[in-house]
Each structure stands twice: as structure tokens, then as C-alpha cells.
């Protein structure tokens, strides 16, 4: 026996909320993206735990899709960060308060 199902789900919830707190409280755009990555990873833990509990493979399949989604999201997000850094010279989200910079 590895663990009970609620311990696995609690681990996933803890990691998810750590990511949410990170992306809500940091002012740096890169750290906001890091928080989103942490949240996607936590959802992967929950999906694999459910897949192991019920003995069906669909949860693990969706983790693969989440990984592809995270790769696409982070590439476009980092390209946007580079673009706005070149436009405004900052990666701080408080500096993007003007519409026509």
C-alpha cells in the first residue's frame, strides 16, 4: 500500500495552492509563469493518483496532454515576456500600467 487516496489528493492540493499563492503574490512576470507551471504539475499529481486508484489509464493520458499544454504555454508566455521587456524595459507587472507605452 502506498498511501491513502486522500493523502495523495491533499499533496496535490497543497502544491496547487502554493502555485496559486506564488502567481498571485509575486510581481515578476517570470515568477507568475512559474506559479502556473506549479499548478499544472499539481493537477498532474491528482490525475495520476486517480488513475492508480481506479486502475484505468485515462488519467495518465491526460497528464501527457497537460505536459504538451505546459510546453506550448510556456513558450508563448516567455516570448510575450521578452516582447514586453523589449518594449518597456521591465519584467515587473506593475510597470505595465499605461496603455500606450
Amino acid at each position: 500500500m502506498i498511501a491513502s487516496y486522500n493523502e495523495l489528493i491533499l499533496l496535490s492540493i497543497f502544491v496547487f495552492i502554493l502555485g496559486a499563492v506564488c502567481s498571485a503574490s509575486r510581481r515578476n512576470l517570470i515568477m507568475i509563469l512559474v506559479g502556473v507551471e506549479i499548478m499544472l504539475n499539481a493537477s498532474g499529481i491528482a490525475l495520476i493518483a486517480g488513475s492508480l486508484r481506479w486502475g484505468i489509464l485515462d488519467g495518465q493520458v491526460f497528464v501527457i496532454f497537460i505536459m504538451a499544454l505546459a510546453a506550448a504555454e510556456v513558450s508563448v508566455g516567455l516570448a510575450l515576456i521578452i516582447y514586453s521587456h523589449k518594449r518597456t524595459g521591465s519584467v515587473n507587472s506593475d510597470d505595465y500600467s499605461r496603455l500606450r507605452g
Binding site: M1, I2, A3, S4, Y5, N6, L8, I9, L10, I13, F14, I17, L18, A20, V21, A24, S25, A49, L52, R53
Partner: peptide, 26 residues
Amino acid sequence: PGILGVVSILAAFFLIFEAPGTQTMV
């Protein structure tokens, strides 16, 4: 964000330990 996170964790904690069928070992 810290307050909201702690409240969410507490809610999830009570919800998970109250819900039926979550005690099953994997």
C-alpha cells in the same frame, strides 16, 4: 494571497476528510 491559500487549504482538508470513499488505500 496567503490568507486565501490558508482558507482554501482548510476547506479542502475538511472536505476531503468528510467525503466518503477517500480513505481507501491505493
